[in-house]
Amino acid sequence: MSAREATAIVVGASSGLGRALATALAREGYALLLVASDRRDLDALGASLNLQHGIAVRALALDLAREADPGARIAATLEGLPPASALLLPIGYSRDDDDLSLDAAAIGQLLAVNLHAPLAIVHALLPRLVEAHGVVVLFGSVAATRGRGRNVVYAGAKRALVSLYESLRQRYPDRELRVQLYELGFMATNLTYGMKLPLPVVEADVVARTVVQKLRSGSARRHLPRWWALVAMLVRWMPWFVYRRMKG
């Protein structure tokens, strides 16, 4: 199926990596279903991509922290678009006080966005994606490499995505459904803007270009940028008595 006969679904499309992915996919000619929380941003992005690339764009405003069944809403919105062949889930919501001090409501919100939403959306769209021999693209985080005293719930949810990646791969051979998991290093978004980070950040456009280039290749789990694989390996192999003394 060529890009011009297919729909790509981008959840979390209005900013950062999601916006960059939507732009890169539009350049390839995909019809797009854009999902994010704010209607105004979605409409602006959709109008701009339609104008620049002449593609079909549909927008769905959803608050993933509160939506009970986001998958069903997305599936319903796909009607009338070309077959859905790519589902990209660049969703991420973290907060500075995720340090073992959150109340149950805050934990629930973090899990709703970072774990429940990807699980529910993947479940709801699996039949369509399998029928189209499509691809699911999940986005993890290097924050989940090893548990720390910060980003506790966020990292737990992101590590659960590794399990989802493995489940999908165990259930479906590549010829039926491809699954790609990117574990992202520090990226220049409004969440990292102004933060003093110990390693360089990568631009969202650069990540998006790589992801879209590899959309037609097989299932894989990769770090982006690639050198983060080495950093992650060092963190994992670090002796516990050293690791526990590290800041944060």
Binding site: S14, S15, G16, R19, D38, R40, D41, A44, S94, R95, D96, T189, N190, L191, Y193, G194, M195
Partner: peptide, 30 residues
């Protein structure tokens, strides 16, 4: 978190004014 605010050194094009300012980089209307 999420205001996208940070300190930045800004200058005018003619280089006659420089200031350490708060610079917001919003990426959504809200």
């Amino acid at each position: 978190r999420g205001f996208a605010l940070a300190d930045a050194d800004l200058s005018s094009f003619d280089a006659q004014f420089h200031a350490r300012c708060r610079l917001q980089q919003p990426d959504r209307y809200r």
